[in-house]
């Protein structure tokens, strides 16, 4: 764990010197790059922990906030909020949270209406995710002034990071992180058979509801400021489990660190690989994540 944290700090330092302006002035580093790399770490960590906890409660290693529609629901509502001229503080994150919760409720509703099937949830998640992304893309296209935004919303980007957004995301991240660390024992017990959990005094349904709220909160706050970044929450929990097993007290922090590192590297690639053009970071994570998803699908991992 300490090794990975140290590595994260090293990557963070290196990332400060990557960008179109090269080895740059103090002002650029402090006010543009530092918030951006911090945002990358926070968003990567948030998405990973969100994915990890969702995989635990649904006992399915193929789930994550994007594939469950949570991210797309958030993104659609954030876009809708940008069309409302009324201003109030934290408009985007508040809309995002509602959008995410709306989407996950729909997904759970659709998947529960039929007999239990481990793939039902995943498939309803993907369907709702596609539906919301489709509505979002449609709305963006019929509003020409907004077309430039399409990449930001659908493929995610850290380019809008600022100190204000870093502060908002870090507050939500730390509250949720503490929640997940404190609940790590219950999350362990949820991995057991349902009857065992009951006999140990843990009621899975109650914990599940809390976990859905917190993981949606984490993912939606990211979406509000960075658009949809998929697959981080799928890949990192899997890697953490391979490294450390399934004890949540260990893999919640580890997923945070590794998720931060992954998104940081992906963002460096997105900024550095093409001269003068920035590739949305969600494209990089999808290019990595889809083969990973297929690999897991073929392996049919439960968790």
């Amino acid at each position: 764990m300490r090794k990975f944290s140290l590595l994260l700090v090293v990557f963070l330092m290196i990332s400060l010197f990557i960008g179109p302006a090269g080895f740059s002035s103090r002002d650029i580093i402090l006010n543009i790059r530092l918030p951006r790399v911090l945002m990358a770490v926070l968003v990567g960590a948030s998405l990973s922990i969100s994915g990890l906890s969702l995989q635990t409660i649904f006992k399915n290693a193929l789930l994550e906030p994007y594939l469950l529609g949570i991210s797309s629901g958030g993104a659609l509502f954030v876009f809708l909020s940008s069309l409302i001229s009324l201003y109030f503080p934290f408009k985007a994150p508040i809309f995002s949270i509602f959008g995410s919760l709306f989407a996950i409720s729909l997904v759970l509703g659709v998947s529960r209406s039929r007999e239990y099937n481990p793939y039902a949830l995943l498939l309803s998640g993907i369907a709702i995710s596609l539906l919301f992304s489709g509505i979002l893309a449609f709305l963006i296209y019929i509003l020409p002034a907004e077309r430039i935004q399409i990449f930001f919303y659908l493929f995610g980007s850290l380019s809008k990071s600022s100190w204000e957004t870093v502060i908002v995301v870090s507050v939500i991240f730390f509250i949720s992180f503490i929640y997940f660390v404190l609940r790590s024992r219950e999350l362990d017990i949820i991995l057991l058979e349902k009857e065992e959990a009951y006999s140990l005094g843990v009621i899975p349904e109650r914990i599940n509801l809390e976990v859905i709220m917190f993981s949606s909160l984490l993912a939606s706050i990211c979406v509000a400021f960075t658009g949809i970044i998929g697959f981080v929450g799928l890949m990192i929990p899997h890697i953490s489990r391979i490294l450390k097993g399934e004890k949540h007290r260990e893999i919640v922090p580890l997923s945070g660190v590794l998720g931060g590192m992954l998104l940081l590297i992906c963002d460096d690639i997105s900024r550095g690989v093409l001269d003068g053009v920035e590739i949305p970071v969600g494209i990089i994570t999808s290019l990595l994540g889809v083969p990973f998803f297929l690999y897991l699908l073929l392996k049919r991992q439960r968790i």
Binding site: L192, G201, G245, I251
Partner: peptide, 26 residues
């Protein structure tokens, strides 16, 4: 009450001590 099931989830990374310690959760 405690329950002893027919099947158990194969959770990884827990040694025998950890598994027994779960019984202290209540």
């Amino acid at each position: 009450i405690s329950f002893i099931p027919q099947f158990y989830s194969d959770i990884r990374g827990f040694n025998v001590y950890d598994m027994i310690m779960m019984g202290r959760y209540p």
